[in-house]
Design a binder for these strands. Structure first.
Lengths: 218, 218
DNA sequence: ACCTGAACACCGTTCAAGT
DNA sequence: ACCTGAACACCGTTCAAGT
């Protein structure tokens, strides 16, 4: 579970090492933002850092480990501050919006993130604690509070995929005759697919939260 | 877009070919159900069919193409029949449940499915038409109808991931002190994580649909 | 038209050897 | 402790050659 040989604080020669988990993480972020996840390979990571690929394994245990490091950084930017100031329903809404925005450009992390034990991600755990506490203060306790987190997260992940989809996925092409009603209703989508994805998410999220509000009304 | 050299209906010698898109699909399903997606490689697929890996490329254009074929088969089993008989809100609920059940064991297909143009998937398009039509009959028209599909789908995909997660992902381990409230609320989850995932999905879906029902009340 | 066999350009990961 | 270089066991895909 706990990997990561930390650099030399002991005595002995001070031959300060080139690599560290921190450096690996930063290099990974650079590659991902500049070239995309397709180009994030152990070889590319090593090249970016000016070392042999095998050297990376002194600091991370696998490529999955690198993805977890990356996920931790992305998670850091999710804004959950509203849980301190706003009523729970408004805070939940703001949190979900920020959450989705963070993962829209990082859908490659979703399969990792969605099944990652919280024990391996302190940031995530801290976030969950904050949300749970706010729900608790609002009278939503026990399994229900966790279920709400899980449910909202599910919508967020799915919506992040949708937002990352290429334009025109709802264009039926030459299959139009098969789905005349859908084609007609989906036509506007092609104009601004990004805005359409935003609206779809907002519609679902607002309905979800409205349903929750009603269920847990004070 | 249209690949797939169909087998010989013409004259010439009847040297009936070994492969076909159908056979490739069936072999892929066999591998996936018996060994899991990790083992689905072009080499394994070829071995299963008793041919060279390069032979596959006479029938599919890429591995992604195989995954699309697979997705088409999984999609086939989603039950949308309730849209013919039940009120739209109940039908939506039943559809979402079936949808999630189908993709729980096929989360590997979600990244493909979520960004796949409907023009490449007749089954999906037909399903969308059916849902749209039912919503239309209930007075929900235009972009909203498509947004509802997209929103429900997002929740379904995210929830499918959650349901496929290994047991104990909400166990904080030695980080318990960091999140006491969350730990307490999540404790029950470890007993039966499958049932917990089901409940979380149901809670979110019911809230979502309740919110929609209220918004589009007749 | 459809298949084989060899080859290509990659992957992630391991490990003996060095300092 | 940390790095290199070589090697391993794979990937997906292409293509000339056969029938």
């Amino acid at each position: 579970m706990s990997q990561g040989t930390h650099s030399g604080r002991g005595r002995g020669r001070p031959s300060s090492p080139v690599l560290s988990r921190e450096r690996v993480t930063l290099a990974a972020i650079r590659i991902v933002t500049e070239q995309g996840y397709r180009h994030l390979t152990m070889a590319a990571l090593a090249r970016e850092l000016g070392v042999a690929a095998s050297a990376l394994y002194n600091h991370v245990s696998s490529k999955r480990d690198v993805l977890i490091l990356l996920q931790e950084r992305v998670n850091e930017r999710i804004d959950d501050s509203a849980f301190g100031t706003e009523p729970w329903d408004r805070a939940l809404r703001q949190w979900a919006h920020s959450y989705r925005r963070c993962f829209m450009e990082h859908t490659a992390l979703i399969p990792v993130m969605a099944v990652l034990p919280v024990a391996d991600s302190p940031r995530t755990l801290r976030m969950y604690e904050r949300v749970t506490r706010a729900l608790n203060d609002a009278g939503i306790v026990g399994a229900d509070a966790v279920d709400i987190i899980v449910g909202v997260e599910a919508l967020v992940f799915g919506a992040a995929y949708d937002a990352s989809a290429p334009a025109g996925i709802f264009d039926p092409g030459d299959l139009e005759d098969m789905a005349p009603t859908f084609t007609r209703f989906a036509a506007q989508r092609s104009a601004d697919p990004r805005a359409a994805a935003d609206r779809a998410f907002e519609l679902a999220l607002d309905a979800l939260i409205d349903g929750l509000r009603r269920k847990y009304a004070a």
